[in-house]
């Protein structure tokens, strides 16, 4: 038996169904027949549609989409999960998630999600939003959804820039960061400071789980998946509002190579937005 297959076996020898088929690569093994046997242990999650992503090379959205779908598959909730995409780069998320999906006006995802969840309390409802969507135009809707303890989960993708509109300054743009609307770099006393929405949401009594992660490196990807799973679990347990903020590279609008973008997330962005569990009372 190969090491990767061993990984999937529980101590009693049974295959652990909770171990996803996403922990490794294809495994080739020869049986006594001598026929090449291909066992598939890495595949597209069931709740992710088989269509090419439109996202730019080096963008974090496709990884984050995949992680959300892996968690949904593992929790076995594809048939009772409803997603609410944003206006922004992920506006077309409904083309990728094989789930019932309801578009929201820019920033209003938390309110739309509230309407859905209140009517279908047994369902799992999540929003998928960028920083401009959730932390600028949608600040009020998000804070009040958290404060009401809405049993919804927000996936907050923070790339410190308005991506779809072409790289304008976002609420999360770092001081000094050059964008198309802060050409000399963001000046806090003129342009404001990066808004730590997750910390603000943690103050709301209705929020139960908030974690900031990144998909800039493999460790971060694994941690992001765990955080997403925990956030969904908090909702399944009817505890309250949960959110995972994911620091995500945007090489196109940062005007960096994908590799430099990853370094920038790790060395610069995460200084202002530290990778950490911000609140966990779930």
């Amino acid at each position: 038996m190969l090491a990767l297959e061993k990984l999937k076996k529980a101590p009693d020898g049974k295959i652990d169904k909770n171990k996803p088929e996403s922990q490794g690569i294809s495994v080739f093994s020869h049986r006594h027949t001598g026929v090449l046997d291909v066992k598939k242990i890495f595949s597209r999650p069931k709740s992710l549609k088989d269509v090419p992503f439109h996202y730019c090379p080096g963008c974090g959205h496709s990884v984050i989409h995949r992680l959300v779908c892996e968690v949904i598959d593992e929790l076995g909730i594809q048939d009772r999960t409803i997603g609410v995409p944003p206006a922004g780069c992920a506006v077309l998320a409904y083309n990728y998630f094989d789930l019932d999906m309801c578009e929201a006006p820019h920033g209003r995802a938390a309110a739309v999600a509230t309407g859905i969840k209140r009517m279908l309390p047994d369902h799992v409802v999540f929003t998928y939003q960028g920083d401009g969507d959730i932390a600028a135009i949608g600040t009020a809707e998000t804070i009040h959804a958290a404060n009401r303890g809405e049993r919804v989960t927000c996936i907050f993708v923070n790339n410190a820039v308005y991506g779809m509109t072409g790289g304008q300054m976002a609420p999360t743009t770092l001081p000094g960061q050059v964008t198309t609307t802060s050409p000399g770099g963001r000046k806090p006393l003129r342009d404001g400071n990066p808004l730590d929405l997750s910390a603000m949401l943690a103050l709301a009594a209705g929020s139960v789980f908030i974690e900031r992660t990144t998909v800039a490196n493999p460790k971060g990807v694994n941690r992001t998946k765990k955080a997403i799973r925990k956030a969904f679990q908090a909702q399944l347990d009817d505890k309250g509002f949960s959110l995972v903020e994911v620091l995500s590279p945007c090489p196109t609008n940062w005007k960096m190579s994908p590799v430099d973008s990853i370094t920038w997330v790790e060395e610069t962005m995460s200084k202002i937005f530290p990778i950490q569990v911000i609140k966990d009372v779930a």
């Binding site: 409803i82 309801c102 929201a104 006006p105 309110a111 739309v112 309407g115 209140r118 009020a140 009040h144």
Partner: peptide
């Protein structure tokens, strides 16, 4: 019955969108 006093008219109409999307009369 579901009653929510929203934080604004904007939020309330968007809650209407969500509830209506589930098929409810709202």
């Amino acid at each position: 019955g579901v009653f929510v006093q929203a934080e604004s008219e904007i939020a309330s109409i968007n809650m209407v969108i969500g509830a209506s999307a589930t098929g409810a009369r709202v």
